[in-house]
Design a binder for these strands. Structure first.
Lengths: 150, 150
DNA sequence: CCCCCTCCGTTCTAAATTTGAACCCACGTT
DNA sequence: AACGTGGGTTCAAATTTAGAACGGAGGGGG
């Protein structure tokens, strides 16, 4: 199987991964959630070649994860902002951050803290059930074939 | 920046991505959560070359995400199982699945359904606050530098 | 007017990675 | 003995990436 065929698999992980499952794409999305919007801010933060940044941004725009908005004319300049579809990746990024915080933070603690505005506490993300609201662990889930399955 | 330098960044996303931010690695982890354990079951499901599978499995074992257990002798055979560190990737995989279900499911619906054993309902994952238990959206989070930050 | 700077890319070649196919080995089976 | 199976390793070829150079449209200073 090739990367390009991933999108056609009857599997939501495969379809998602074909869009966002790339190291630099995930780093760009991290920056988007931190408010980065301009090409050369991405470049400064990532220190990778511009061709890769251009390629990934274009891909994300094509997929509807980012929007390319004009923010000035003369000369025309664009900024890249998360669409609703892009914002819905928030749980993915938060889960990845939390896994890194848990297993790779140095002695001093995590590089970033996240405060929940509603309750005012620093928090970490918990996976909860949409139906009952209780936390869900790996053993609490029973997987079975759905309507779109094989 | 190179991939190998990602692990040294003061950023939990970068550190996580250096371990799991690879298309095939994510596909392998998906299969692990579905109960796949043996080399050639991974091969049959992914249809990619064995060298890639061997490489990714070794990498995940080195990182402590999978454990390589002997399950028979004569000849000796191993199976790959999630460690606790690996199991703690569950929210990441669930978040990715849900994003794919939301944006890429066909007309018939998602390929797989997930039932929460505790409440008996088919559910989707919700990102909740560890402190107050309420759902958390992208706008509800205030990020600031933590103790391990620059 | 001329030169240089910024922002935002594109293009090109060399270097690195990824891939699939072929090979290997130890056993078990016919 | 010949063949099949589980579980890999090796290696040349295809793909991706890196990084530097190039471009271009406007703005600012002299």
């Amino acid at each position: 199987m090739k990367w390009s065929q991933l999108a056609d698999q009857p599997c939501s992980v495969a379809r998602s991964v074909s869009v966002i499952g790339d190291r630099w794409t995930l780093m760009i999305l991290r920056d988007c959630f931190l408010g980065i919007r301009r090409f050369d801010d991405f470049e400064r933060r990532l220190r990778i070649s511009r061709s890769i940044i251009a390629d990934r941004l274009k891909h994300l725009v094509d997929e509807g994860v980012l929007r390319r908005d004009e923010y000035q004319q003369n000369p025309v300049r664009h900024e890249y902002r998360l669409t609703d579809k892009g914002l819905s990746l928030h749980p993915v990024i938060m889960a990845i951050v939390h896994w890194g915080d848990t297993h790779y933070a140095g002695e001093q603690g995590p590089p970033l803290l996240h405060r929940h505005r509603a309750c005012g506490c620093d928090f970490h993300p918990v996976l909860a059930c949409s139906e009952c609201g209780e936390p869900v662990g790996p053993r609490d889930v029973e997987v079975r074939t759905g309507p779109g399955g094989v």
